[in-house]
Design a protein around this nucleic acid. Sequence first.
DNA 1: ATTAACCCGTACGCCACTGTACTAGTTGCC
DNA 2: GGCAACTAGTACAGTGGCGTACGGGTTAAT
Lengths: 213, 213
Amino acid sequence: MATPSDGARTVTARAQRADARRSVEAILGAAVACLARDPEASVVEVAAAAGVGRVTLYSHFKTRADLVDAALVRTVERADQILDGTDTTGDPVEALTRLVASSWQIVDQFRNILLAATRELPAERIRSVHDRILRRIQTLIERGQRTGALRTDLPKRWMLTTVFSLIHAAAEDAAAGRVKVDQASGLITATLVAAFTPPGAMVPAVASGGQRL
Amino acid sequence: MATPSDGARTVTARAQRADARRSVEAILGAAVACLARDPEASVVEVAAAAGVGRVTLYSHFKTRADLVDAALVRTVERADQILDGTDTTGDPVEALTRLVASSWQIVDQFRNILLAATRELPAERIRSVHDRILRRIQTLIERGQRTGALRTDLPKRWMLTTVFSLIHAAAEDAAAGRVKVDQASGLITATLVAAFTPPGAMVPAVASGGQRL
DNA sequence: ATTAACCCGTACGCCACTGTACTAGTTGCC
DNA sequence: GGCAACTAGTACAGTGGCGTACGGGTTAAT
């Protein structure tokens, strides 16, 4: 039931005027921006930021939850596009490095939106929206385990958790000024590679030259 | 200013009756329990759980923030006690293993309280309350780095973040049923040890015998 | 040009929570 | 026993968000 993949036009189904589409777009943009700043941003704030009346907003999104959902979908779509442009072939460790570098930026910008979604949307919904993105890293990990580049004594699930958790933590630290933004990606990968490399194996010089941290 | 370390008796300063102390105790217990379950638990819920009138609660804690603060302090004190009973001497890696095992349980139980505090208390206040606990792990890391048991090419700060982040993530996964509670501690340490051991060094068989994960 | 879609602003009802005031009853404490 | 501390309950004011209803103006589309 509900809205199983309706993208933007949440309420009206057809005969939508160019005019309205522009509004929806503005609202969506504002929602993403506002929620990224403050996951508890009210509908009033979003409407104001979109340069639109609160009531108008309600004519496009039946409820606040609807709005958050739309913002989440939009964000995930964007993320997916970015990730699509990231090469995940070749040496698994290097691929992981690249993938982390891309993901890091996304998470850093939009973790608050996920937070808002977590609070106001059913967990199952969020999981389903994130599925494609999760799968990306998971398959990479699996491939790494098959080729022997990554250790196999840890559950895949946990490794996935570790990746996300570290990215997340770095984002938090960056927000608090405890870590410089341009260092973060390097720290994450250095930690992850060490954690995921088979015990006893020599750690390869990661990606872009032998760096110092 | 406000209340710079007043523990329980937030409002009344002296001439407190045994009667009242019992109430405060009940409220505090209820607050911890309720907030651990739901970080947005209302004052009404806490009062009810404590078997006390809402107004009575307010006569002991001026505001909701006061209540949350007290619950946080209480929790941290408990945690500190537990950590006090944990041996942090000897081989740094083994000490880390023990410390993680202890911390894990605490975090798993009380992360919601920290969450509530994060929302309603100034960040600086939280940081100061947590200071003692943080320091514990930090000094251990420093010692490990001096003895060569832990790598030195990662910032201490980041290593600290990593530890907390993984513990936290494990707690989340456990709550969602993605990880069994009795496995968590092992996963965390296995990951941490690999991540923190100097590159190229042989990973020692950790703590309680050569385990399988 | 006319029609329908769209937008705006204001205003209203609803709800949940916080914090306070007051009264009356109960209980620890000397 | 008697005072003071404590408690309960109710009631009220304030705040702030959500969702809806309307009436009048504006703008895209055919």
